[in-house]
Design a protein around this nucleic acid. Structure first.
Lengths: 378, 378
DNA sequence: AATTAGCAGTCTAAAAAAGGGGTTGACAAA
DNA sequence: TTTGTCAACCCCTTTTTTAGACTGCTAATT
């Protein structure tokens, strides 16, 4: 049977058309990755010859795999076992082979419904989102929000809860709500509180927290007449205004336990390490922060960090699929999942993508208006 | 050498004084438990003879251990290995042998300082408390608060964040803060909002959420004049008022990863199971709820549930040390740790005790006044 | 009666040995 | 350039061996 794949060259010598050779190589790489994701065992040439490429012999496949190994896409854990994908292979897979497919409409709808049901209290929105991510991906889900200090103030109000005790409630334009108690030590008439609140809101709406703090300090020190007699209260509020956020509680991680599920005891140590890192939060959230600014710089929406691409060595056997979350032109946070390197990237990527959109929509919906307009109805 | 431990009886026959025999038995039991907690290996008679009771031979100890086994305190995993404590043994240990000691003043102070530093935002108080518990105990820490529906309302306020969008903020007497968005669809003047808020607060302060809902429904339906024109807003608020709490986010668990640390791969399966349960939350929180009402009924403060004493089979290799958290005469929540059965009960019990006190103090401090008084300053 | 010493029997956990399965690399043939 | 073949290799699993520790029992002792 004459083959059309070959260029004839002289007396019976053949050269495989390069584009065909390349396609075949990719097919093998893809197959190795998919196979490995499925079985978690090194993949051998025989297995490929029996499965995906039945018209090519195992010997040929061996040769190609050898090339792939030399190019850094495959790795042999042991001299005579099959080969497994390297981080580079996953990277290639994600970049070129795994086209981000849209999810089936039915599934989209199902997720949307679940999402709506869960996310009714803004406070919980982030926790619930990460929980949903975890549930649907089978890995750990996280939601990370930028420092509140970087966010813009929507409103700052005061609720008298008891004599000498006030609850300060801050709403940012991204829809985040923070509240903290302020102990005044003396009773303040609600009317005066309203004056203060009104004054503050007129001054600081739309500013970042950092700017707001600065503006208010100036007013206090210059003895502004409207707040003169409440300078000490304002001072106290100010003192607390940035305290609530020391970087700790901007990170929600849910479903770490799920990582154990698809895991054998072999990865036990890795998992332990990973948990320590994630639960400590500090390292992990600074990693996310870095990633966020990187993504903003490169105007990237969806990001996949595979194994050693993560800065933290504790995460070198895991991958992070994340998406930026923007309100307007400002990146206010990130969300995604953290799971085993050998995950189903195509599925997870589209999932993260989709839930990211949902969260964004939710936030936009909440922080519906640009700053400045709200004065009209005070 | 004449022994005074014995009663003489006839020609050289002796009977060991029963109280001495009992004390010795207890000493052995205690030693076995402590040894097992430390080494995690079955304890043999030789080991005891070499360690704690050097004046008694291993054979004697063997006999006594056999008795203890017959009585159900010890258990032999293998025919010829040492023995390990049963749940019953731990129970006995906790009830009779491990006197709840006070913590060293120095350590108390150290914890107090840490606690203060962390707990400044009420919102975070619970998360931070459980995190602290986890950190200090080396196990997982949890804080559970009763359904908000059972708690009494301190205040309910409305903050206009955007035209057609209001943030409802609810403060309970226990100091819990809940907030949720209310979409009105039309602009409401802040003044009218204040009227509504004032009216509501006069009516419902001090009631439980369930009662409050009922009262407000009545007013709406009877067309009360003050809120007549805002009936639909009030209705919407009501609709949401109990939605935020469906039992999900009243439970904070931190530091599950720590349970892995002191664990070998043997317990891997157990751990996996446990994580699944705790992360699902439903089962676990209903377990805690049950425990809470039990403790309230029996007027118990500190509770230890050992292994199979927990209703959940997934937790049968773990123990829960918990304490009720009361404000006034009302139990508003629980906190504690969940850790391996072979934990240092004495230390952990006093720790949980102490942090429970701290949290209670914190809450009292916050919800400082009995209901009714706050009208005076509106 | 209570304790002790000693010994045989039992079991585990760790180490060593053996076997099976699948893979590779190389080479010669197509 | 591809294929068939085969020796060599190595891992993983199972089996065997070994060493160590504990118990239970009995007889002797206090």
């Amino acid at each position: 049977m004459p083959r059309t794949d070959y260029l004839l060259k002289g007396k019976g010598m053949r050269i495989l058309k390069p584009e065909i050779a390349k396609a075949r190589k990719e097919k093998i790489l893809r197959w190795v990755i998919q196979q490995f994701v499925e079985t978690r065992r090194p993949v051998g040439s025989q297995m490929i010859a029996d499965g995906a490429l039945q018209d090519i012999s195992s010997a040929t496949i061996r040769n190609i795999m050898k090339e792939l190994e030399e190019e850094g896409y495959l790795y042999q854990p042991h001299t005579s076992g099959g080969r497994i994908p390297t981080d580079k292979a996953y990277r290639y897979y994600v970049d070129y082979l795994a086209n981000v497919q849209k999810m089936a409409a039915r599934e989209r709808q199902r997720i949307e419904e679940q999402y709506d049901a869960r996310v009714n209290e803004v406070d919980n929105m982030l926790v619930q989102t990460s929980r949903l991510l975890a549930m649907l991906s089978g890995a750990a889900g996280f939601v990370y929000t930028a420092h509140v200090a970087d966010q813009r103030v929507q409103r700052l109000d005061f609720i008298p809860v008891a004599p000498g005790m006030i609850l300060a409630v801050l709403v940012t334009q991204a829809g985040a709500v923070r509240h903290w108690p302020v102990r005044t030590g003396y009773v303040i008439a609600p009317a005066r509180l309203r004056v203060l609140s009104r004054f503050i809101n007129e001054e600081i709406a739309g500013l970042t927290l950092a700017q707001a703090r600065q503006v208010l300090w100036q007013h206090i020190h210059s003895g502004h007449r409207e707040i003169a007699d409440m300078a000490d209260l304002a001072t106290q509020v100010l003192k607390d205004i940035e305290r609530p956020q020391t970087g700790a509680d901007e990170l929600y991680v849910e479903g770490i336990g799920r990582l154990l599920e698809n895991t054998t005891q072999a990865d036990y140590e890795d998992l332990k390490q990973m948990m320590r890192v994630v639960e400590e939060r500090e390292k992990f959230s600074s990693l996310l922060n870095e990633k966020m600014t990187d993504m903003e710089k490169s105007n990237q929406k969806l990001n996949v960090s595979i194994g050693s691409e993560n800065e933290l060595k504790e995460l070198q056997n895991l991958s992070i699929v994340s998406t930026a979350c923007r309100v307007g032109d400002k990146t206010v946070g990130m969300l995604g999942i953290i799971g085993p390197k050998h995950m189903e990237y195509t599925r997870v990527m589209s999932l993260v993508n989709f839930i990211g959109d949902l969260l964004e929509a939710s936030m936009k919906n909440w922080a519906s208006l640009p700053a400045g307009d709200e004065n009209e109805y005070e």
